[in-house]
Computed example of a mutant assay.
Amino acid sequence: MSAETSRRNVRILTWISIATGVIGGLLVAFPTVLPFGGPWVQLALGIATLVLAFRARKIGIAEIEGFDGRLSLFAALLGFLIVFFAGQVAFGILVDVATP
């Protein structure tokens, strides 16, 4: 891949990961917006944020000279926070279902 194509891919992946992270963060902050399946959607958005952010970092580190990955690192941290908080709620739901 050329450097310009790599830069474009990193930019697209980073901004999509930030967008999914912001949506997931809003759903964590306002959980009543999705009354059915909320924690599962939050977990999916958090995982998508992580995958996209780390994919952007991988491409940037491997193919772009002098890559500054602070924005994709921010998206990855946002994904970790979403997975942490949504995971707690999802785990609580699973425990409630499993206990008689």
Rank of each mutant, 00 (worst) to 15 (best):
L45K: 07
A90C: 05
A62Y: 01
I59R: 05
L52S: 11
L27E: 01
M1P: 13
L50Q: 03
S72M: 09
L81W: 13
N9T: 07
G46S: 11
T14K: 00
I47R: 00
G37M: 04
A98W: 10
I64D: 04
I18L: 14
A75R: 01
V22I: 13
D96T: 14
R7D: 08
F84V: 12
T14V: 00
L71H: 06
F80A: 15
F80S: 14
V41Q: 09
F67W: 03
Q88R: 14
T99N: 14
F36M: 15
S6F: 01
F30A: 00
T99V: 15
S2Q: 11
V10A: 04
Q88E: 12
V89K: 11
N9Y: 09
V89N: 11
G21N: 01
A53V: 06
R70F: 10
G60R: 01
R55T: 09
A86S: 14
F85G: 08
S72N: 12
V83W: 00
A29N: 05
A3N: 09
G38N: 01
F54N: 15
V95D: 04
V41P: 06
A44R: 02
A90H: 06
R7L: 11
L45D: 07
T20D: 10
G87R: 03
W40S: 10
F30Y: 00
G37Y: 07
L43I: 15
T20H: 14
D96Y: 13
S17H: 06
F67K: 02
G24P: 03
I47T: 08
I18D: 08
L52A: 12
G37A: 07
S72E: 11
V51P: 06
L13G: 03
I82Q: 00
T49G: 03
I93H: 07
T32W: 05
G37N: 06
L94R: 11
V10N: 04
V28C: 00
R55W: 12
L26C: 05
T20K: 10
M1N: 12
V41W: 10
I61N: 07
I47M: 05
I23F: 06
V22E: 05
